[in-house]
Simulated scan of single mutants.
Amino acid sequence: MTTVLVVDDQFLIRAGLVGLLRAAPGFDVVGEASDGAEAVLLAQRTRPDVILMDIRMPGTDGIQATRQILADAPAPPPRILVLTTFDLDEYVYGALRAGASGFLLKDSGPERLLAAVAAISGGDALFAPTVTRRLVEAFAQQAGAAQVAEPPTDLAALTTREVEVLRLIANGLTNAEIADQLFISEATVKTHLNRTMAKLELDSRAQAVVVAYESGLVTPGRTSS
């Protein structure tokens, strides 16, 4: 049974999410919060497996709440799935940097929502990596990210293969797609990713995507060859 905390300042949206989850087998809604501050308190009290987190809320927003929840949570921490829309790229980016495991668009259908919660609970760091890439690229373009030909020095600790895997992850490929492209097993892809995250002191695949863009390893509008 996957325990879920639902956070959204709009009552109708929150009620709809709660109703959908409670009607589906395998999910248990352990609480609902109308703002980030309440979410922090409920997360400490209920210790859910997954938190559906709205971004824009009065007072403590979803980014601040995500950062605080993950900083204070005992192991294993909850996995946070951010709810957003296409026109909030900078908020998505901030949430990924704060440690969110992934995000879901608010116009997604019920089946996709349930699949996303199940995927996040099962350990998938990003439910929709191709959408992540589009959103992070959009933010990077707005921020005027510079293009560089070689990985910067802060990635110097990575091996050539680890850099390859990181680049492909940032370009939105799944582990299976990376394995197919590099002619290695999925288990090997996971090993490279885990070592990369350890070397760069990252907590999630989402943060790895952000680092790839921030460092210039991947640049807006360009994909790996």
Rank of each mutant, 00 (worst) to 15 (best):
Arg112Gln: 14
Ser121His: 14
Gln64Ser: 12
Arg222Thr: 15
Val18Gln: 11
Ala198Ile: 05
Leu104Glu: 05
Leu135Lys: 01
Ser108Tyr: 05
Leu21Cys: 08
Thr84Ala: 12
Gly123Leu: 02
Glu137Trp: 10
Ala208Ile: 04
Gly216Gln: 07
Asp72Ala: 14
Asn175Phe: 04
Val18Met: 12
Leu193Glu: 10
Ser215Leu: 10
Arg47Leu: 11
Asp54Gln: 10
Asp28Glu: 14
Tyr213Arg: 10
Asp89Leu: 11
Pro74Met: 06
Gly26Ile: 08
Ala98Ser: 04
Glu32His: 07
Phe103Gly: 03
Leu126Asp: 00
Val7Asn: 07
Asp49Ala: 08
Ala115Gly: 10
Arg22Ile: 00
Arg67Pro: 01
Asn194Gly: 08
Thr219Tyr: 13
Glu38Ala: 15
Asp28Phe: 05
Glu186Ile: 11
Lys199Gln: 09
Gln68Asp: 01
Ala138Ser: 14
Asp89Ser: 15
Gly31Arg: 12
Ala208Pro: 01
Ile51Met: 08
Val209Pro: 01
Phe127Glu: 00
Phe183Ile: 10
Leu200Asp: 02
Phe183Asp: 13
Leu173Phe: 12
Tyr91Thr: 01
Asn171Arg: 13
Leu105Ser: 03
Val18His: 05
Gly16His: 05
Gly221Val: 09
Val29Glu: 00
Glu111Phe: 09
Val50Thr: 09
Arg97Gln: 15
Leu173Ala: 08
Asp28Ser: 13
Thr2Lys: 10
Ile69Asp: 01
Ala71Met: 03
Val165Ile: 09
Thr223Val: 15
Gly59Asn: 06
Asp154Trp: 15
Val82Gly: 00
Ala156Leu: 01
Ala170Trp: 07
Gln141Thr: 15
Val189Ala: 08
Ile55Trp: 02
Ala206Tyr: 02
Thr46Arg: 14
Lys190Asn: 08
Gln141Pro: 00
Ala149Gln: 12
Pro58Ser: 07
Gly94Met: 07
Gly102Ile: 09
Val29Asp: 01
Leu217Thr: 08
Ser34Leu: 07
Ser121Ala: 15
Gly62Lys: 04
Ile63His: 04
Val40Pro: 02
Asp54Trp: 13
Gly36Phe: 05
Ile169Ser: 07
Ser185Arg: 06
Ala116Asn: 04
Phe103Arg: 06
Arg133Met: 08
Gly122Glu: 01
Leu70Arg: 06
Gln141Gly: 02
Leu20Pro: 06
Ile63Met: 04
Ala157Asn: 07
Val218Ile: 14
Asp87Thr: 15
Pro110Gln: 10
Ala140Gln: 13
Gly31Glu: 08
Leu166Gln: 09
Thr132Tyr: 06
Thr159Ala: 10
Phe139Ala: 00
Leu88Tyr: 04
Phe86Gln: 12
Arg97Glu: 11
Asp203Gln: 14
Ser224Val: 13
Asp124Gln: 13
Gly172Met: 07
Gly36Ala: 05
Leu104Arg: 13
Leu5Arg: 09
Ile55Gly: 03
Leu193Asn: 01
Leu41Phe: 00
Ala71Gln: 12
Ala206Ile: 02
Ser101Leu: 02
Val4Pro: 01
Pro48Lys: 04
Asp9Ile: 11
Phe127Thr: 05
Ser121Cys: 14
Leu202Arg: 08
Gly16Ser: 06
Ala146Val: 14
Thr84Ile: 12
Val211Ile: 14
Val189Leu: 13
Asp54Ala: 12
Gly99Phe: 02
Asp180Gln: 14
Gly94Val: 07
Ala100Trp: 02
